[in-house]
Design a protein around this nucleic acid. Structure first.
Lengths: 152, 152
DNA sequence: GTTTTTTTGATAATGGTTATTAAAAAACAA
DNA sequence: TTGTTTTTTAATAACCATTATCAAAAAAAC
């Protein structure tokens, strides 16, 4: 899993995130670069603890606080989508930093990005019906993934 | 806001919740009854802190832990829907204890229940596309309510 | 090279929720 | 009624992911 195994798409996301950091006048430190690379490469919607683990593998002195701050920074500049859960197991998506649906396994916590169109239309409909100016949304489906169905 | 002002619908929900508690072999204590009544009557999706405040108005010795436990119990027996937020301001719906969309004001935190059909179809579609056995879902729209738009 | 600003790392503080436990209340039995 | 068992309450300690604090380190600016 070295740098030669990074897919072109992930490489692209890395460039985008670096560019956004630069244009927002934030420094690109080794720690930030490491966090950013993990977020860009992972399809698993990792938690801060998981990112921390991965970063520690190449930067053993990295602090947990730094990971929190970096993820939060990337979220603030719109390069990472936060999936907050009230049971305290927040997950992060560095590939699609815009609202989109998720399918979540209630057993193993695996999270997928399903294909689903038409949500922007729903937002517009909500706008009309409620008078709220809709700015964002979140749609999560909860269930059992194929693996956990087999085990059950 | 005394008991004579309870709407027929709310009265109905109270009866349903009481019946469910009874059939599940839980005792109907004054504290539980107070919590339950507030949840059944409120359209505001109250937080535990708010429920606690209201309960204290008629039962000044009620403990916060009791409110937490009662709300959790009602959730467990399927009579209350929990809207968990990772910023620690969970809200509860005792009127529609099943998945349904919400419209949330990002400024004043007001929560509404909009009309929106067809979500069960979406769940079925997710089932087909992902292989997950979908059991539940959550759809939140975030924006600014009419009042907060005026103030802005 | 010196100064200024940003970032890091270590750790303390925060705060909603849960766990604990003795006392009170309710249900049950004799 | 009285005693016994079970459930529930009230008070508070514990939990834990996240945030705040701040001195040291690193990078940028001068």
């Amino acid at each position: 899993m070295n740098s030669r195994n990074i897919s072109p798409e992930a490489q692209n996301r890395i460039e985008e995130m670096l560019a956004k950091l630069k244009s927002s006048d934030f420094r690109i430190t080794p720690q930030r670069y490491a966090v950013l690379r993990i977020l860009a490469a992972s399809e698993e919607h990792p938690s801060v603890a998981e990112i921390y683990e991965s970063v520690r593998a190449e930067f053993p002195t990295t602090s947990l606080a730094t990971v929190y701050k970096t993820v939060s920074l990337l979220k603030d500049i719109g390069e990472v989508l936060e999936l907050g859960f009230h049971d305290g197991n927040n997950r992060y998506d560095g590939n699609r930093p815009f609202p989109h649906p998720h399918v979540i396994c209630m057993q193993c916590r695996k999270i997928m990005d399903p294909e689903l169109a038409g949500l922007d239309d729903l937002s517009a409909e909500m706008n009309r019906k409620t008078g709220y100016k809709i700015l964002s949304h979140r749609l999560d489906f909860y269930g059992l993934c194929p693996d956990c169905q087999k085990l059950a």
